Computed example of a mutant assay.
Amino acid sequence: MPTGVHIRDVREQLFGAAERVLLDAGPSALTSRAVTTEAGCAKGVLHRHFDDFDDFLAEFVLARVHRMDAQAAALRRAAGTGTVVGNLTGALTAVFGSAAVAIVALVTFRDELRARLRRTWPAGVPVLTEAAEMIASYLAGERDLGRLDAAADVDTLAFTLIGAGHMLFADRQAAPPGAETVRRTVTSIIAPALAP
């Protein structure tokens, strides 16, 4: 892009480009040059807005984590409606159908990125931790409404659902699992905790 051409919302444009590169080619292909080429801008644009590439990546990951806020609120509002299995199937499909699996691979792939994220995200992998908190909050709501057993350990159920969901969606080469596969997995995990 020629010097002096104004780019609207440059951060989001760069984040969108990073997400596309990450989804198309994986974490090893995610370089500052790949991002700026995908975004259609000069490499210097990225470095004017971020201290370095790992600073950019940390901001990218956190921006994608914060996108889950609306999804978490919608899932909490769904408590008491539909079925617990249906709501969880939809939530896991939405989480892992996004860039979440690729972001987990990116965080695992880059030591410096993990170190930077630890400054503001002290435990866990950001996307997975946020997803587990979202699921646990929803399950607590269902437990409060009596649709889950009063003794249900919502945190353990949430971690189990997130781990299983990640395993289902982790293969970047194969097609994502169908809704029935996700539903069967959710059912096998959640069925013992459903209120009779």
Rank of each mutant, 00 (worst) to 15 (best):
F50D: 01
A29V: 05
V101P: 02
D54H: 10
A42V: 07
D55F: 01
A94I: 04
H66M: 13
Q71K: 13
M68T: 15
N87E: 12
E12Q: 14
L23N: 10
V45M: 12
A105W: 06
L88Y: 08
F60G: 03
A18N: 06
V10R: 13
L46Q: 03
L23M: 13
R77G: 12
G82V: 08
D54A: 07
D51L: 14
F60K: 02
D55P: 00
T31W: 00
A63V: 00
Q71Y: 09
I103E: 07
V107L: 05
V101R: 05
A58L: 05
T83G: 12
G97Y: 06
R20D: 09
A94D: 09
F96M: 04
R67M: 08
F109A: 14
A73F: 08
F96G: 03
T83Q: 07
R77C: 10
L62P: 00
A17V: 07
D9V: 06
K43C: 00
A72W: 04
A63Q: 02
L92V: 14
G40Q: 06
A17I: 07
L57P: 00
V95T: 14
T93D: 11
V21I: 09
L88R: 10
D69Y: 10
A94Q: 11
R48A: 09
T108L: 12
V95M: 11
E12V: 10
D69Q: 14
T36I: 02
S32M: 07
R11A: 13
D54T: 12
G86I: 08
G82A: 10
S98A: 13
S98I: 07
E19L: 10
F109Q: 15
T36P: 00
S98F: 06
D52W: 03
